[in-house]
Design a protein around this nucleic acid. Structure first.
Length: 1007
RNA sequence: GCUCAGAUGGUGGAACUGGUAGACACGCAGGACUUAAAAUCCUGUUCCCGUAAACGGAGUGCGGGUUCGAUUCCCGCUCUGAGUACCA
């Protein structure tokens, strides 16, 4: 590759020898050079850093614009070429907005608490802080190389005590708050305490635990302090409770639902089991309705909103109480079974009720005769893993408890069953089964021979359930003959009247577990006294993560923090679990607003100025994690008057995932003993011939001059086999293998013989003539597949400006696509061509002050408008094409006009900032002023055309083009067309039945 | 199963409100320059028929429909990708 070497003209040198000298000493000789991206990029990156060019002002007469990227977890592997995709897009947008006169906040930081650094610590003993520090340095170096316009003065790291002090502080605010449903808002817990003191718990409408006490003001005052605190904990927005959690023994921690995929941990893929534990939780369910409603007010991708809606899982229905049939022999702790249903209208079709096997009443409702069957069933269910239970949705299983419940509306006696298709975690863990309308109930009824009662006159239930809502009710008491909506109302009214049920909205979303039994996270600012949690004082923040000897649980099974010696609050023991990964990322965009404030998470002034994020770019994998939790915390902070906006991220764009594109070589499988000495590889086309060979294949070996005995056959067919092997994509260019590097890559390839695309052989030591073409496939980008492309390598070869533009040129930002370096040369050539516009044949910078021509102005104003439109709708790939078109046009026009080129520099600068900064100063502007230049103003008059080359089509098929003045109206244009000799020839003497003329667009004739 | 997104040359993709399908780029083929290579430049490149050009035909996953005109709108189907799942 000699891309960076100077172009040498004839008069400058006469022999090649001098050329070699020049290449090795380009800086010492004062020759003018071709586009030297390396020097240019280093120079300007240094300049931006030295001058803090992108430092955002906290007050400005300009309107504010906040462009945010999802900050990365600094992993040890560094950035691969897929990571910067979103950062490049947001950077282009941020730079564009500055040119458009906005005060832009474009910060970056690190989500630096997390599992990988801790796993590494467990294996090596290296403190996660050190690993994290090293990784951050790598990330910073890689990010700097790409030329981002981040305001680094605002950098945040979630693992830094200055930062997590405020994460802990927000935790304390949540602990000190409760959710008042009466006003749909969180309030300080002191408000609740005051209410209890004056009125007791009677008329409180709060989001709280299920089993809260009922008391009056005097009862409250009579309680001990600890009793009061225990009760208040049931109301706090962050609270402790025993809950079934996803326990991952291999990681030694609890995982959130969104961190578990199909029964295995998302990170690492270890098995996850259910376990009951005392856990910190966040009452996110309090905000379920607001989280749902808020989606309608924000500009996010529809699929992402849909994912959040599904996750929140609102369903409207009714809760119904089925009285348990009196059985004197037993004591009932509860007199009824409560179910949730979305089809309360089908209540007269209920022929049995099913409980989840884990339901708390199962034990006491099982009759002695059924005890054996129930116990056997529960044992069987417990054995089934979560995975089996999900995979096996076909088998019907269950057991009869022996007890009965009564239909609350007509007193019918109904069998009470248990079955594992009813989930303990959803609704009330009990369902009313309507086999005529629900397919699962139908299968259950068929299997256990339970009655199936039709309830609609049009229901077809011979072979399956029919969930129709159309038709009139039958077998349904007082709703017989009614339609769906009136029946539903009538049933709910009746249930309410007799106190057996009410309309209810149910959410699938659960409260979020807020604790991890791990080391590398924020300590929870809580100590325990007499079994009750107490917040530490604000003045004691930050509660710094203590040192430990090992990053493993203690012998007694406590989290790693249990190992810390002398880590104890004066009044009690500290909480030993740490906060989950999403804690630090749930508010970080506010810290950027005022990153160095040590008395507040961010000053009121800063928050009121920057308000919210105008544009957020990141991956859709955070749909139900980070993006939901952030909205939750934001809403809470809004309720507390800490922030000003209800929603944190006004507009969100998902960049697509970059997949890997693997390359393959095809190795002939010949005799084993020979394999160890010389290996043969087939180029793509020859490998395809090999596969398609109908016969033995020996003739192909003869053709290639390979004299070998064949060892492997494919399935007794007389065909030869070859094996596909991954080859490092970094020694492949446009699917052409670098044969020398390939031979050097592994010792067993040193003597490899390659059958090239044209069928000739390439032996070691031969002069290489011809290509070896590799096969390819789209796979995940990973080291094991040798398809990881590192941005550093590409920057070294082509420069950051080329990388930035190429990543955008690859396709629409939101679309997932495989990374493919083929084609990067095209973008590189474009930048050189752009550079050449400003230089003469001797690479001397030369521009003219002449008046721009009409054609030049037209090219310029086309691109002014195009880039504006494209950037505003985030269509970055199309503007790269347009830049190429513009530069091609200006090259054809031999344009070196200063006025035109200077505007071009401004427009291109958000995409390729380094080259543009260099040209901007060469044009005589002050260094560093380009970033705050003014985007050129579009003037449509340069684009007005006198004529248009109308496509002339017959029956919708274009036949020819015809230039016609645009001053003519439709009928005059039609006359010109019909008078044209070529048109008449196409019409072949016939008159068209109809002529459609769309001015400035098309002429179509119907014959 | 359900929800969503998508399917356009050898490849990545463009065509924004229905109006010249294949912009731009890669690759490929041919040519210029060069002792040669690299770099650079020029020409061609959807497919089929045809030596080539003119000309003709087909064509945006498949089958229909609306329209003067459909990659775009409507109906049905196939395939691919993503998310989600006994959610009562």
């Amino acid at each position: 590759m000699v891309l960076a070497s100077p172009i040498l003209t004839n008069h400058q040198l006469t022999t090649k020898l001098i050329g070699i000298l020049l290449i090795s000493l380009p800086h010492t000789l004062n020759y003018k050079m071709d586009y030297q991206f390396k020097d240019i990029e280093q120079k300007w990156q240094q300049f931006w850093a030295d001058h803090q060019t992108f430092k955002a002002e906290d007050n400005s007469t300009k309107p504010k614009y906040y462009v945010l990227d999802m900050f990365p977890y600094p992993s040890g592997a560094g950035l691969h070429v897929g990571h910067p995709l979103g950062y490049i897009a947001s950077d282009i947008f941020a730079r564009y907005k500055r040119l458009k006169g906005f005060n832009v906040l474009h910060p970056m930081g690190y989500d630096s608490f997390g599992l990988p650094a801790e796993q590494y610590a467990i294996q090596t003993g290296q403190h996660p802080a050190i690993t994290t520090e090293t990784n951050i340095a790598t990330y910073r170096r890689q990010l700097d190389q790409i030329g981002f316009s981040f305001d680094w003065s605002r950098e945040v790291r979630t693992s830094s005590p200055d930062y997590y002090k405020w994460t802990q502080w927000i935790f304390m605010q949540l602990f000190n708050s409760w959710y008042n449903k009466a006003i749909e808002k969180a309030e300080p817990i002191s408000v609740l305490v005051k209410h209890f003191e004056q009125h007791g718990s009677g008329d409180i409408n709060a989001v709280c635990d299920e089993e809260v006490l009922s008391f009056n003001a005097d009862d409250w005052k009579a309680m001990s302090h600890d009793e009061q605190q225990a009760e208040l904990l049931k109301y706090r927005l962050t609270y402790l409770r025993e809950s079934t959690v996803n326990w991952c023994p291999a990681l030694g921690t609890v995982l959130a639902n969104d961190e578990v995929k199909d029964g295995f941990s998302e990170r690492g893929g270890y098995p996850v089991e259910q376990k009951k534990m005392m856990q910190w939780s966040m009452r996110i369910t309090a905000y379920a309705e607001r989280l749902l409603q808020g989606l309608d007010t924000i500009d996010w991708p529809e699929p992402l909103k849909e994912m959040q809606r599904n996750w929140i899982g609102k369903s409207t229905g009714a809760s119904v109480r089925f009285p348990i049939e009196n059985q004197e022999s037993r004591v009932k702790s509860q007199e009824y079974i409560e179910v949730f249903t979305t089809r309360v209208d089908t209540i007269f079709g209920v022929t049995f009720v099913v409980l989840a096997p884990e339901h708390e009443l199962v034990k006491e409702l099982t009759t002695p005769e059924q005890q054996g069957a129930i116990d056997a069933y529960i044992t069987q269910t417990k054995k089934k893993s979560e995975l089996d239970r999900m995979a096996d949705t076909k088998t019907v299983s269950g057991a009869f408890t022996g007890s009965y419940v009564l239909n609350p509306l007509n007193g019918d006696k109904i069998q009470l069953w248990i079955a594992d298709y009813v989930l303990a975690g959803y609704g009330t863990g009990a369902v009313m089964a309507v086999p005529s309308g629900d397919q699962r109930d139908y299968l259950f009824a068929k299997h256990f021979d339970l009655p199936i009662v039709p309830i609609m006159d049009i229901q077809q239930i011979e072979t399956e359930a029919d969930p129709t809502k159309d038709g009139r009710y039958i077998n349904s008491d007082f709703i017989n003959g009614l339609f769906y909506s009136e029946a539903t109302k009538a049933v709910i009214a009746k249930l309410e009247e007799i106190g057996a049920g009410k309309a209810k909205i149910n959410f699938r979303m659960r409260d979020a577990i807020f604790g991890r039994q791990r080391y590398w996270g924020e300590p929870v600012p809580v100590y325990f006294k007499d079994g009750l949690p107490h917040l530490i004082e604000e003045s004691e923040l930050p509660l710094v993560l203590p040192e430990v000897d090992k990053y493993l649980p203690t012998e007694s099974g406590e989290p790693p923090l249990g190992r810390a010696t002398g880590w104890k609050h004066p009044l009690g023991d500290y909480e030993l679990s740490t906060m989950p990964g999403w804690a630090g990322s749930s508010w970080y965009w506010y810290r950027y607003m005022d990153a160095h404030n040590d008395s507040e998470f961010a000053s009121k002034k800063a928050v009121e100025y920057w308000k919210d994020v105008d544009l957020y770019i990141g991956g859709s994998e955070h749909a139900t994690g980070h993006l939901l939790y952030s909205r939750f915390w934001n809403k809470f902070m809004k309720d507390m008057n800490l922030v000003v906006e209800e929603e944190p991220f006004k507009k969100l764009i998902n960049q697509g995932m970059i997949q890997g594109r693997s390359n393959f070589v095809y190795r002939l499988l010949l005799q084993e003993e020979d394999l160890s000495q010389t290996q043969y590889f087939l180029s793509k086309k020859q490998a395809d011939r090999w596969v398609n060979t109908q016969t033995f294949g020996q003739e192909l070996l003869d053709e290639w001059n390979i004299d070998y005995k064949i060892k492997y056959y494919l399935e007794n067919q007389q065909r030869l086999a070859y094996g596909s092997l991954h080859v490092d994509v970094n020694i492949v260019n446009n699917d052409v293998l670098d044969i020398e590097k390939f031979r050097q890559s592994r010792s067993e390839y040193n003597n490899a013989i390659l059958v090239l695309e044209d069928g000739t052989l390439s032996k070691p030591g031969d002069v290489i003539k011809g290509n070896y073409i590799c096969g390819w496939e789209v796979e995940k980008m990973s080291k094991s597949k040798f398809n990881v492309v590192n941005p550093d390598d590409l920057i070294a070869r082509y420069g950051a400006d080329t990388l930035r533009m190429y990543e955008m040129f690859l396709g629409p930002l939101e679309q997932s696509k495989p990374w493919n370096t083929n084609g990067i040369e095209g973008v590189f050539k474009f930048l050189r061509k752009f550079w050449r516009l400003f230089h003469n044949d001797q690479w001397v910078f030369t521009v003219s002050d002449a008046e721009p021509s009409k054609a030049e102005l037209k090219s310029l104003h086309k691109i002014i408008r195009k880039v504006e439109e494209d950037v505003e709708r985030f269509s970055f790939n199309t503007s790269v094409s347009s830049f190429m078109i513009a530069v091609n046009e200006l090259t054809d026009l031999k344009c070196n006009n200063k006025a035109i080129l200077q505007d071009m520099v401004i427009i291109l600068s958000s995409y390729a900032p380094h080259i543009c900064e260099e040209l901007w100063t060469l044009l005589g502007n002050e260094a560093g002023t380009l970033s705050y230049a003014t985007y050129p103003k579009f003037n449509g008059t340069y684009l007005i055309e006198d004529e248009f080359a109308y496509p002339i089509s017959i029956n919708g098929k274009t036949k020819m083009n015809l230039s016609i003045s645009l001053s003519l109206d439709a009928s005059a244009t039609e006359a010109v067309v019909l008078a044209n000799a070529d048109v008449l020839r196409y019409l072949d003497g016939k008159a068209p039945k109809k002529v459609i003329v769309v001015k400035g667009r098309i002429v179509n004739m119907v014959v």
